[in-house]
């Protein structure tokens, strides 16, 4: 079996076998490939880069070249069992709209976000007075594609405001280990990223 990133593994664990999955920003298709072989899912992807799409399609994956912010709106409600967004919500121009669309076209959404409340990030800003640059967020402020950072607490608050239920939570530390299965102030400090299984209320 192919090996995939830690946060992708956690995402994969949240997916029921034989389900329909849309991976938004699927990159080279590693997660889709893993899911279709390990869980027999009917997988689709959207990817911005031509290289990514070409690699995916060349590996037999159903992927379209497109932009989540413009291309998600076409899908009908509940078209998928899961809509996945790995590590890219912070790069969206309208992250709230994207989240809304994901929860509309999927019965569930799975989102992983880097935590801007992670202690190393807080400490860097506090001690150096400069925008944090970490191993996982290795961009200078003027070059980063990540334009909408949030802390895990920010993310949880947004879901509450939007009427989205968090069904499962995984908080990962620097080494990619799960340190918590629930959100807390502590997790918001020690977690470097969070993975959330979401469901819209009343859906």
């Amino acid at each position: 079996m192919v090996d995939i990133r830690d946060d992708l593994k956690l995402i994969a664990e949240m997916v029921e076998p034989n389900s329909r999955v849309l991976d938004v920003g699927c990159g080279d298709g590693a997660l889709l490939d893993y899911l279709s072989h390990a869980k027999n899912v009917d997988g689709r992807g959207i990817e911005l880069s031509m290289d990514g799409v070409r690699q995916c399609v060349a590996h037999g994956l159903s992927v379209i070249q497109g932009d989540a912010e413009t291309d998600l709106k076409d899908y009908p409600a509940d078209a998928f069992d899961y809509v996945i967004l790995g590590q890219t919500l912070q790069a969206m121009r309208q992250p709230r709209d994207v989240l809304q669309m994901m929860c509309r076209i999927g019965r569930r959404a799975i989102v992983s976000v880097p935590n801007f409340g992670y202690w190393r990030v807080r400490l860097q800003l506090l001690l150096t007075g400069r925008m944090p640059v970490t191993e996982k967020l290795g961009y200078q402020w003027w070059e980063t594609p990540n334009i909408h950072f949030c802390t895990l607490r920010d993310f949880v608050v947004l879901t509450e405001e939007m009427g989205i239920t968090i069904e499962q939570t995984r908080i990962l530390d620097h080494a990619g280990r799960v340190t918590s299965h629930a959100h807390s102030g502590f997790a918001n400090l020690l977690g470097e990223q969070g993975v959330f299984l979401l469901k819209r209320n009343g859906g």
Binding site: I64, D71, D74
Partner: peptide, 15 residues
């Protein structure tokens, strides 16, 4: 592609 997405068809597309 958009029309195919609207019916959630199985589609790949690359420019």
């Amino acid at each position: 592609v958009h029309a195919l997405n609207a019916v959630a068809a199985n589609v790949s597309f690359v420019e």
